[in-house]
């Protein structure tokens, strides 16, 4: 007769326990949502166009100039450009070297900056939070989807460059920076490794953008701030007087990916680059978490 739980007449909705696999729905949905935005596709389109332009420019330049792009000509073009006419695979390295200082991190800055601030601005953040997405889980989903975008953006540049290189130039054995020649297959593998390192180089910007994104309720402001910071840091990295702080600037070791094209590979700078990106991810990731989990959502 004695009943443990009172008021079972108006039966409450059975508490549904969350399941580990169900928690991943948000991650999947976050990624598809990012890639269904017209803006994302436009950014990827611009990134895909860069290697095509570089390839066509090189093709035009060499078809009438009689191969004056050769080594030892004195005129130092951007990295790897001189090799493109010999081997289309070098268009991949040249394009990554051309987009890494600005185009790629700018695209990441747009996606990362908008990630939380854009949701706050449109008011959808409050509905995600009462769903309840959970603040930590939502932030992790945002960071993960930005990482996926980093990889996708890098791969778009690399694949577009490979395609353009294959169509416009001959492919063949690859002569590395150190002078050693390796097979095309190994060259391609090194290309994949380069793309991986370039994508990982963008983690720092992504973490910084995510942190900025938790500070404001305006997606545009967060994007502009992130891209502004990127430009500022890039400029600071140019002044020799600031050499003391430069090893701590996230773009400082970016172009070290070319060390993968040596035989043997120089790991020193690449390791520093990855360590620095990890440091940025840890510092700004924690800052973003501290800010986002304690902030009042008023939008």
């Amino acid at each position: 007769m004695s009943r443990a739980e009172p008021g079972a007449a108006a039966a409450p909705v059975a508490a549904r326990p969350p399941r580990a696999a169900w928690r991943l729905s948000l991650f999947r949905n976050e990624i598809t949502t990012v890639f269904r935005r017209w803006r994302t596709l436009a950014l990827l389109g611009v990134l895909a166009a860069v290697p095509l332009l570089v390839g066509i420019a090189v093709k035009i330049e060499t078809s009438d100039g009689g191969g004056s792009f050769g080594t030892g000509d004195g005129g130092e073009g951007p990295a790897f450009v001189s090799q493109i006419t010999n081997n289309g695979l070098f268009l991949v390295f040249a394009s990554l070297a051309a987009t890494l200082p600005f185009f790629l991190p700018m695209a990441i800055g747009v996606i990362a900056g908008d990630s939380v601030a854009g949701e706050a601005g449109s008011g959808t953040l409050r509905y995600l939070l009462v769903a309840p997405a959970g603040r930590t889980r939502l932030l992790l989903a945002k960071f993960a989807s930005t990482m996926v975008f980093c990889l996708a953006a890098t791969l778009v540049v690399a694949c577009s460059a490979l395609l353009a290189g294959a169509v416009l130039f001959p492919l063949g054995d690859v002569t590395l920076i150190s002078g050693t020649t390796v097979s095309f297959g190994e060259g391609l593998l090194r290309g994949v490794a380069v793309a991986g390192v370039v994508a990982a180089s963008l983690i720092g910007v992504a973490a910084l953008g995510l942190f900025v994104s938790t500070l404001t309720g305006s997606g545009i402001a967060a994007m502009a701030t992130t891209v502004g910071l990127l430009i500022t840091v890039q400029i600071l990295d140019q002044f020799p007087q600031l050499h003391a702080i430069q090893p701590y600037l996230f773009p400082h070791y970016w172009l070290s990916f070319s060390d993968l094209l040596r035989e043997p590979v120089y790991w020193d700078q690449i390791g520093r680059n990855l360590g620095l990106q990890g440091l940025y991810a840890a510092v700004f990731g924690s800052a973003a978490w501290a800010r986002f989990t304690s902030k009042d959502v008023l939008a």
């Binding site: 969350p18 399941r19 169900w22 928690r23 949905n29 949502t33 017209w38 509905y127």
Partner: peptide, 24 residues
Amino acid sequence: ALYGFLSGRDNLVRYDAADPTADP
């Protein structure tokens, strides 16, 4: 508050996916 670039159905799918107790 809605995602203008998603359909009405996909808006709901997104909010449902945000709930860790919702069976996909």
